[in-house]
Amino acid sequence: MSLQSLGTQMLRVDAREVPVELALHPRARRITLRVDKARGTLRLTLPPGVSESEGLRFAGRQQAWLRRRLSELPQAVPFADGAQVPVLGELHTIRHLPDARRGVWRSAGEIRVSGEAAHLPRRVRDHLKREARREIAARAAPLAGQVGRRHGRITIRDTASRWGSCSARGDLSFSWRLILAPERVLQYVVAHEVAHLREMNHSPRFWAVVDQLIDDVETPKAWLRRHGASLMRYG
Score class of each variant (00 low, 15 high):
Pro182Tyr: 01
Pro19Met: 00
Lys37Trp: 11
Pro98Cys: 07
Arg184Pro: 14
Arg198Asp: 09
Ala138His: 04
Leu66Glu: 08
Met10Ile: 08
Tyr188Asp: 00
Gly82Asn: 04
Val50Thr: 13
Met232Phe: 15
Leu91Glu: 14
Ala208Phe: 02
Ala160Lys: 11
Leu178Ser: 01
Arg134Val: 12
Pro98Met: 06
Glu17Ile: 00
Gly60Thr: 04
Ala80Asp: 13
His127Met: 05
Glu54Phe: 08
Gln62Cys: 11
Pro182Lys: 02
Thr219Pro: 07
Thr8Tyr: 05
Arg95Gly: 04
Leu186Ile: 01
Thr45Ser: 15
Arg39Thr: 12
Glu54Asp: 15
Arg29Met: 08
His151Ser: 14
Ser165Gln: 02
Leu22Gln: 01
His192Asp: 02
Val210Met: 05
Ser167Arg: 06
Val209Gln: 05
Gly152Gln: 00
Arg112His: 03
Asp14Cys: 11
Leu42Ile: 00
Leu11Val: 04
Glu110Ile: 07
Arg102Glu: 10
Arg69Tyr: 04
Arg157Gly: 06
Arg95Ala: 12
His96Pro: 13
Gln75Ile: 12
Thr159Gly: 09
Met10Arg: 12
Glu21Phe: 10
His25Gly: 12
Ala117Trp: 06
Arg16Gly: 09
Tyr234Lys: 02
Ser5Glu: 11
Val124Ile: 03
Glu218Leu: 11
Arg226Pro: 04
Arg102Phe: 01
Ser175Gly: 10
Pro220Cys: 02
Met1Thr: 14
Thr32Gln: 13
Arg123Trp: 12
Asp171Lys: 00
His196Gly: 03
Glu110Phe: 08
Arg184Trp: 12
Glu193Thr: 00
Gly164Leu: 03
Ala23His: 07
Arg205Asn: 12
Arg153Asn: 13
Glu110Trp: 06
Thr219Cys: 00
Arg149Phe: 00
Phe58Gln: 03
Gly145Tyr: 09
Asp215Pro: 04
Trp207Phe: 15
Ala208Tyr: 00
Arg12Phe: 12
Arg177Val: 08
Ile156Lys: 05
Leu143Phe: 01
Glu218Arg: 11
Phe58Pro: 07
Leu197Thr: 01
His96Asp: 11
Arg112Asp: 01
His227Trp: 14
Asp215Tyr: 03
Ala23Gln: 13
Val50Asn: 06
Gly40Ala: 05
Arg169Val: 07
Ser2Gln: 12
Val20Gly: 10
Leu44Asp: 06
Ala141Lys: 15
His127Pro: 06
Glu72Arg: 13
Arg134Leu: 14
Arg68Ala: 15
His119Phe: 12
Leu73Asp: 08
Trp176Met: 04
Gly228Met: 05
Trp65Val: 05
Val124Phe: 03
Val87Trp: 10
Gln62Trp: 10
Asp126Gly: 07
Ser173Trp: 00
Asp216Pro: 00
Glu52Val: 15
Leu97Tyr: 03
Leu24Arg: 14
Gly115Ala: 00
Arg30Val: 02
Ala76Pro: 13
Val77Asp: 05
Glu183Val: 15
Pro86Gln: 02
Ala138Ile: 01
